[in-house]
Every structure is written in C-alpha cells, then in structure tokens.
Design a protein around this nucleic acid. Structure first.
Length: 760
DNA sequence: CTCGGTCAGTTTTTT
DNA sequence: ACTGACCGAG
C-alpha cells in the first residue's frame, strides 16, 4: 500500500498525506498534478479516513473526470460509483435532477447549449421589438452569462444607462422564458444548484454532512459562482462544528480562461477564506528539459500578480529551442513539414509531434501542406459530434418528446424537414403563446384552422414520439425518432448528405454506447434519470468525443488552449507574431489581456518534453487579406542562451548558425535554407497593421486613382496577358489577383509587379 | 414558402 | 476564406 506514497517526491507526498484540513496545491506544469489528486483520494480511502460516498471531486472537462476515474480504479479496489466525480455542470445537473421539485424545475427539464441560448435571446428580442442594431444578441448573451456567473438574477442586477437597462430587460424576459419552458442553460445549472443549496437548509446540510472531502482540479479556472458553490458545500459559512476539507489544486500561471469568467483571484480568496496555512508548491517538473523550462520560467516572470513558483528539473539541458522566421505563412508551413519529416525519419512517433497555434484559422495553410506531402495529421477542436446540425435536429425531436415546452427545440425542427410552416405561421403562433402564456407546442391548438392543421402534422409526430419513448429501449427510440421525424428520408433524398445520414444513424450507436457505459460505471448520477433524460444530458454536457482517435499515429494539430494538460516530445509553436500571439485584442486591451496571452505562451512552451520550435511569418493571409506582422514580443522575453535562431534574428548578425554541428542541427539548418528558397522578397517596409472595416473602406476610396483596378487588362513580362480579377489593400501594400490568359491565377504585390506589367 | 445570391463579421472554448 | 443572416425572385 505504501508503494502509493513511496514513489512520490517530498512535496507530492506532503500534499497527498495532508491531514483533514483545506489546502491549496500550487501544481506547476508537468509536476504530477493528476497523480497527486488521485493519490490523495486513494490515500484517504485506503487509510480509512474517508469512505467513497464522502468524496466529491470536481473537474472542468469530462475528459479530466474520466481520466481521474480510470486512474483511480487502477489504484484502489473501492467502487468509484459511490463517489461524486465529474464536472461542475455534470454534478449540478445531477443534484438538480435529484431535487428538481425544490429547485423549481420539472422532472423532465432539458438543457440549452450556447447556440440554443443565443437563438432564445434573439427570439425574445424580436418578439419584443428590440433591434439588434442597438445591442447584439451576442452582447446580451455575454451579459446574461456574466451576471449568472456572479450569482445574480435579473432582479438583483444593477445597471447604468440606457443600454444597461435594455440588456437587463432582455435578461428578465430570458429568465421568465427559461422558467416557463422548464429548461436550463449551462450557467443556469450552476446558479440553480447554488440557489438550491443556499435556500434549502435541509438539502444543504445533507450534502455538507456527506461530502467530507472535496477535491477541485484546475482551481484557477473556477469562476465566482463555482467558488461560492464550493464554499456552500464545505460548510464554511454555516458555522458548522467541522468544515469539510477542500483540496484545491491549481496553477495561477496556467489560467487562460479569464475571457470566459475564470477568476484567478479565487486562489487568493481561498487561502484567506479557508485559512490555508501553507500552500504546497509542486515545482519539480517531470516533463521538460532544462532549456524549455528556463524559457518558460523567464517568460512567466514578466507577469505581475503571481503567487510565485519556479519549475526545475533534473533532466538536463536538452536541445536548444529552435526559432525559424519565415517570410510567408506558406514558407512557415513548408518549414514545419520539412522538420516533421526529418523528425519522423529520426524515429519520432507522429503522435508525439504537436503543432500549436493561437487561433483555429491558422491551421489551414499547415493542413494543406501536410496533405500535399502525405503526412498524416489530426486536427483537434473541430466540429464535435453533438454539435453537428443534423444531430442537433434529431436531439431536438427527442427533447420535445421529453419536454414539449422546450421552445428552442420546437423552433429548431417545427419546419425541418420543411413541412410548409413558414415565418408567418410561427409569428402568429408565438403571439398566441405569449398572450396565453403557453408553450409553442400547446399554443398550436389555438390557431386558426388552416395553420393549426399544418402544425398538427408536426405535433402528431411529437405525440407519437412521446408514446414511443415509453415503449422502446433508448437505441430503438433513437431509430424511431430518426424515421418518424422525416429526417432520415430527408437526408436520404438530399444530395451530398451521405455524411449527415451516416451521422444521424450513428446516433443510435452513441445511445447504445451511453447505455453500456452507464452499466459499467454509473458515475454521472444517472441513477436518478430515465435513460432518455440521461442521454439528453449526456449529449448536452459532453459535447462528443474528440479524443476517440487520440492514439492514431498522426501529427497533432490544435490551438494552444486545447493543448492544456497534454504533452509531446516535439512541439512547434507557430504564428508567433505580434497581433496574432499575443493577439491584437489582448494588446489593445489592458495589462491583464497581455498577461493572459503570456500565460497562454507559458502553457504552450511547457507542453514540450524534448524539443521545441518557435516559428513566425512576416507575411500572412488572414480573412482574405495579407497582413504584415512583426515577430512576437515574447521572443525578447526568452533567455538568449536557450534559443537557437535558424534564420537571422533581425537587427543582429547571426554568425553562430554555422558553428554548432550535430546531425539534427544540420538538418534544421538545411531545411531552414530550403524553405527560405521559396521566397526572397523581404518587405522591410511592412509594418504590423490593424485592419478594420472602416479603414478598409477609406483605403478603397483612396485607391480610386490607381490604374490597376479590377477588370483592367494587363500584360506581364513573364506570364503574358491577363485580367485583374480582384484587388486588395492591406496596410501600405496593394495587391491584385490576376487571371492570365494561360489560365494561371496569381496574386501579385503591385509595388513589386508594377515594374513587370503594362496596362493594355 | 423556398431557394439562391449578397453581405457583414470573424480569439481563444468547455459545459 | 468562410460562415451565418437577410432579402428578393420564383
């Protein structure tokens, strides 16, 4: 049994064997965080300090929760089924189902995802004649979610000014609408669960007595409401004779979700509120080599407001961090693939190679190049299974079978597949529903005959589904829904819909998989839910497996955000340009924005075990125009001795690039040279620019005197005659796309091309 | 009512 | 470049 503890380092061991008090574990990147969390639970169980039902462990992602359960089941023989291990949302959902009556919800309440939430807001704005020109629905969605994350209902919100009033008014309508429909959005799950606990003493005391040990993963990502929820469960505010021990694990340096409400300040508040004596620091890194850690430490030290932590390793210096500055994004992609091919030839596993970027839009050039040169790859974070339109349609039918008052689901599919129910009919229906305070479904009966008849085709379907759900096993019910709704027929006859058809048929397997998973480990509290309700929750809360093919032998592409928690032998951080990483919005933002970008960079660097490459391009196509960027200011925050510039660092002579031998460095140099060959014009005049629509318009006007206009016939000394098919301005450069008579299409920089072309 | 074209907006993302 | 929203013609 002590093997559990013996293999830990002193700090890890101190954390795992802490007595029954609240504690903060500052767990640096790669310091064995998950191991400490699971070992702690195992320790409590094996020594009889806790029984399984006294354990509550909260994570942010389903993936992390699953990981914890599976690791735990290899460590202890206790049944994990009696512990509550899950995401904040999952656990709140579980709690609300158990006490739906006290929480003011119907037993059949359904969950709105973000897009459902947005369309509900849009619908309410339209119904109440609030124009999106005044405030966008997105702004209001943001406003509402922020207020909920502060724990505030519409009646508790104070606002200033006309726009504030307007947003608040929509919040109120929205709140009423959710209540009427019996649905919860994501933030609502938390807020309602919080209110349930705070208002109902009996329920609160029950959970307080039960969960003697509360463990929180990624504590730096908690928002204000989540922290208050934890406080309620701990009993710290109830003057209980004994406060439950909260074991909070987090890393303030890896807080990268402030933009969605995460509050790093919770860590300091936690130390104060729970009177944490000595936070434990896990600073020994078991992942990366010295150069990588030095770079990470140096970078992050530029942030103020840190709790302070310095990673160290005994793994040795390792390779230097290699830097490649490309002229174009295309050249950057070519360099990546050159290097990757070399690494693979040296025996590196493809799945041990990661290409990271700041925003998804950057993946395309890289993907194209990987495809062109036959390197298998996998992109993370694309459209998830349950997010696909056809799946959401099918689920909407199922949601209606469960809860006919779910107006979002109703509107999604009332006329899909098309059954002649248009905007006019819906408008009338919504009016009636509003006046009579009925759900859209119930209001269909009250419409004039013709409209009512059209709608009854739809409501009949739902009535059938309601009967069927009682009589069929879940997978068969899915089949029935797909058939009865007309979706199957629709996708069968619609051309180019083979994939969609396959997906909706796949939903049956998803239901089957869900059921069998439930039988083996019922950890999501689905014991209190019907299979259908459980499956619908599952579909809303676990947006679908992106991980399914994680072990495939392919190069891994993902955003830096998506890479958190992962590690690879070879990592490329790409697009390191001012404006991109750090991103424009953060630069223009206050200091906090830049600090979050820096933490993001810190996360990116610490993903690498053995080798790290940093790349950037001076020139990049984005949103249809070419941008010219300076390299990222982060380069200047990394210690020079950890870096190896494969291309000359501007403003400095790079003579050392020939000096250091080694086969792998030579190859870097060769591929750097090779990639460089593709393009030779370095636009030194280019400056980082910000393009807004207004600026674009102004430039377009200023451009009126330019002879190289769209439609003009020109002749190029090399490519012959052609016509300008489009022109673009970006910054102080002007470019044109020319379709030559030969069929060749080229985009030329006017500044350079004008010496080579003549107007015809 | 439906389809097909035009036009604005575009960080990151989990639940 | 790509997507979702909107508008006018059939």
């Amino acid at each position: 049994m002590n093997s559990l503890i013996d293999s830990l380092n002193p700090q890890q061991r101190a954390a795992v064997t802490l007595p029954d008090v609240s504690s903060l574990i500052l767990a640096g990147a790669g310091s064995g965080k998950t191991r400490v969390l699971t070992s702690r639970i195992a320790y409590l169980l094996q020594n009889g300090y806790a029984s399984p039902e006294e354990i509550l462990a909260v994570t942010f992602t389903n993936k992390a929760a699953k990981e914890m359960v599976s690791r735990l089941s290899t460590m202890v023989s206790f049944n994990t089924k009696y512990m509550w291990i899950g995401t904040f949302h999952g656990l709140c959902n579980r709690m609300l189902h158990s006490h739906h009556e006290q929480a003011g919800l119907p037993a059949t309440f359904t969950i709105l995802d973000q897009s459902d939430q947005l369309s509900t807001i849009k619908r309410l704005m339209k119904a109440n004649n609030v124009s999106e020109d005044e405030v966008s629905a997105r702004d209001i969605q943001h406003f509402i979610n922020q207020r909920k994350e502060e724990g505030k209902r519409a009646s508790q919100v104070k606002v200033l000014g006309y726009l504030g009033q307007l947003k608040l008014q929509v919040y109120q309508w929205y709140e009423d609408s959710l209540n009427k429909e019996g649905v919860c959005d994501f933030a609502e799950l938390l807020l309602r669960s919080y209110e349930l606990l705070s208002r109902n003493e009996q329920i609160r005391h029950y959970y307080q007595r039960r969960f003697r040990f509360i463990l929180v993963d990624e504590f730096q990502d908690t928002n204000v409401l989540q922290y208050r929820w934890l406080k309620l469960l701990s009993g710290i505010e109830d003057n209980c004779e004994r406060v439950n021990a909260v074991f909070a694990v987090g890393d303030d340096d890896q807080s990268i979700y402030a933009f969605r409400g995460a509050n790093v300040g919770n860590m300091k508040d936690f130390v104060r509120d729970f009177r944490v004596q000595n936070p434990i620091r896990l600073e020994q890194n078991y992942r990366s080599h010295g150069n990588i850690l030095d770079a990470a430490n140096a970078l992050i030290s530029n942030n103020s407001e840190r709790l302070g932590k310095k990673l160290w390793t005994d793994a040795g210096r390792g390779d230097p961090i290699r830097v490649f500055g490309a002229v174009t994004d295309q050249e950057e992609a070519e360099f990546l693939v050159d290097s990757i091919k070399g690494a693979i030839a040296d025996g590196v596993d493809r799945k041990e190679i990661a290409i990271l970027y700041r925003s998804n839009a950057q993946s395309r050039v890289i993907e194209t190049e990987l495809t062109r040169r036959n390197v298998p790859y996998k992109v993370y974070g694309g459209l998830r299974f349950y997010d696909r339109a056809e799946i959401k349609h099918t689920l909407a039918y199922m949601r209606l079978a469960e809860n006919t008052a779910d107006d979002s689901a109703f509107l999604r599919v009332v006329n899909f597949p098309a059954r002649g129910i248009g905007a006019k009919t819906i408008e009338v229906l919504m009016d009636v529903a509003k006046n009579e305070n009925l759900s859209l479904f119930d209001a269909t009966r009250l419409l004039p005959k013709t409209a009512s008849q059209k709608l009854s085709v739809f409501t009949q379907i739902i009535e059938y589904l309601k009967l069927a759900k009682e009589q069929l096993e879940l997978p068969d019910f899915v089949d029935f829904t797909v058939e009865k709704s007309g979706l199957k027929h629709f996708y069968e006859t619609e051309k180019n819909s083979e994939d969609k058809l396959e997906n909706i048929l796949e939903l049956k397997s998803a239901a089957q998989a869900y059921l069998s998973e439930e039988q083996t480990d019922s950890n999501n509290g689905t014991d209190t839910l019907s299979p259908l309700a459980g499956f619908l929750s599952h579909a809303s809360l676990e947006s679908g497996e992106n991980q399914a093919k994680a072990n495939e032998d392919a190069v891994q592409l993902m955003t830096v955000h998506a890479s958190k928690g992962l590690e690879f032998n070879l990592v490329f951080i790409t697009g390191l340009e001012r404006g991109l990483f750090p991103h424009d919005s953060a630069i223009n933002d206050d200091k906090n924005g830049l600090e979050e970008e820096r933490r993001l960079m810190y996360v990116a660097i610490t993903r690498a075990r053995k080798s790290l490459y940093l790349t950037y391009a001076q020139q990049r196509m984005m949103h249809g125009l070419t941008r010219y960027n300076m390299r990222s200011p982060f380069f200047d925050e990394l210690p020079a001795q950890t870096l190896k510039w494969l291309t000359p660092k501007e403003g400095e002579r790079s003579s050392d690039r020939y000096s250091c031998g080694g086969s792998s460095l030579m190859r870097d140099y060769q591929s750097a040279e090779k990639s460089r060959h593709y393009s030779s014009n370095t636009p030194t005049w280019a400056k980082g620019i910000v393009t807004s629509k207004l600026e674009r318009d102004i430039r377009r006007q200023a451009d009126a005197g330019n002879p190289y206009r769209q439609g003009a016939r020109i002749s190029h000394e090399k490519f012959g005659p052609g016509r300008i098919t489009s022109t673009r301005n970006s910054g102080d450069s002007h470019e044109m796309t020319v379709t030559f008579d030969s069929g060749k299409v080229l985009t030329l920089l006017t500044r350079i091309a004008k010496n080579k072309i003549t107007l015809m």
